Simulated assay, not measured.
Amino acid sequence: MAAAARPRTHLRTMTPTAAELDGAVVLVTGAASGIGAAVAGLAARRGATPVLLDHDIEGVRQRVASLGKHDFPGVRELPALAIGTDVTDEPSVRSAVDSTLERFGRIDIVITCAGISGPVGSRLEQVSLADWQRVFAVNVTGAYLTLKHTLPALRRSPHAAAVLVASDSALVAAPGMVPYCASKAAVVQLARALSVETAGQVRVNAVCPSVVNTPMSRGDLGRGDFTGAGYPVHEPEQIAEHVLFLASPQAGGVHGTALTMDFGYSARSAFPA
């Protein structure tokens, strides 16, 4: 039997700047606001070329303009790209990937942040089929389509990585969130299964944050802000730090992991003793 081919390594000599992204082309879905916007902004500050995808084209255009103006004063034109994309529509995703490759010639990192919560507070028997399918279309099919069409380019990158934004709701549950919980569990297993399929070529991981201070979370919980919430809340920039660590060469040995960020809540027993 022939010896199995040794997988390509994603590790390199560690230096103080090893977490910098060194001009990598980083494609981010759901980048008009929330975690996606924070990831794109931090990636740019770390030296990457961000590609911002969102169905809200004006939102991502404003993000790109904001990056150039606030994060890089004096820089006339930031190497970044904003593309209006519906992640549930395969031709739309394919077109966005083609546009990215035409502009930059490669894709090194993919971060799937596009997501919706769906009907929060509704019992399963009250959830319409259309609402159920919409949650899975955005949260799961959107990640699948993005990865399907970026994987050929990722496989050509020497330090390819993908990070899927899931949720602690993939691991624990609250009443009235069955579609969201089920979809985020699917995202975690998508990351794990794909990490096995792409071993030695593309590192694939997921992150599972608890409540994050985003427009979606504030809307779901009926809050203008989280002041006095009584529970800890992440800022999007904190999630972005973890996401980009997993995407960086410093995390070269991390494959198929779902990183839980929930302030330790899921580790606690609810047993009343």
Rank of each mutant, 00 (worst) to 15 (best):
T257I: 14
P119K: 01
G115S: 07
L81Y: 01
R6L: 15
V211M: 13
G219S: 14
R218C: 11
E235M: 14
V204I: 06
R268D: 01
L124V: 09
P7W: 00
V140Y: 15
R155I: 10
V188C: 06
A258Q: 00
T17C: 05
S33V: 13
A19F: 07
V211P: 04
A24M: 13
N213M: 06
V93E: 02
M261N: 03
S248M: 10
M1G: 15
L190C: 08
G200R: 04
D225W: 09
F72K: 08
A182N: 03
R155P: 03
Q201Y: 11
R268G: 01
Y231V: 01
E20D: 12
R61T: 10
P73M: 05
S269M: 01
A258P: 02
D220M: 12
R12Y: 06
A37G: 07
V26F: 09
E235K: 13
L53F: 06
W132V: 08
H149I: 13
L246R: 08
C113Y: 08
G30C: 04
S269Q: 00
A19D: 08
R94M: 13
D54R: 11
A32R: 06
V51S: 03
S33F: 08
L11N: 09
Q250S: 12
L101N: 12
R45L: 01
I57P: 05
T150F: 10
C208V: 05
N213W: 03
A166V: 07
A43D: 04
P236H: 09
A5T: 11
S248Q: 01
V188R: 00
D22Q: 13
H234V: 05
R61L: 02
G224T: 12
G41P: 02
Q62I: 08
R192G: 12
L101E: 10
T13E: 15
D56R: 09
V120K: 11
L11F: 05
A199Y: 04
P175L: 03
R268F: 14
